[in-house]
Simulated scan of single mutants.
Amino acid sequence: MLRCLPPLRGSTSGRQAVRDTKDRERGTLLFEPSAWQAFVNAVRDGEFGG
């Protein structure tokens, strides 16, 4: 289960990089700007509960 997803500085090609700090061996996920913004908006709007 992912618990901490900090955005990483120095994202490549305009994409947003994130990783699970509890399991760094899993690597980094890269998101297109529109997908990252949709995720941020969904969190802000409470779409994931909590």
Rank of each mutant, 00 (worst) to 15 (best):
V18H: 01
T12P: 09
G50D: 15
W36I: 08
F48T: 04
E25I: 12
E32K: 10
T28E: 09
D20Y: 00
A42W: 01
N41M: 13
P7W: 03
F48G: 06
V40S: 09
G46W: 01
M1H: 08
D20I: 04
S11G: 15
G10C: 04
A42R: 09
L30E: 14
E47N: 09
M1W: 04
V40C: 14
G10Q: 02
P7K: 11
G46Y: 06
T21W: 06
P33G: 04
F31C: 02
G10H: 02
S13W: 08
S11E: 11
V40Y: 01
G10E: 01
P33R: 01
T12N: 13
W36P: 07
P33A: 03
R26M: 12
S11M: 05
A38P: 05
L8E: 04
W36Q: 03
S11C: 11
G49T: 03
F31R: 02
F48Y: 11
R44F: 12
F39D: 06
P7Q: 09
V43H: 03
D45P: 06
F39N: 05
L29E: 04
M1G: 13
D45E: 15
A17Q: 07
L8I: 08
Q37S: 13
Q16K: 12
T21P: 00
P6T: 01
V18F: 07
W36L: 10
R24N: 14
P6D: 00
A38T: 11
R15Y: 05
Q37H: 11
F31V: 03
P6L: 00
L8W: 00
G14P: 00
G10N: 03
N41K: 14
G14K: 02
P7C: 09
P6C: 00
R26E: 07
L2T: 15
V40R: 14
A17F: 03
M1E: 07
R19F: 09
T28Y: 05
R44N: 15
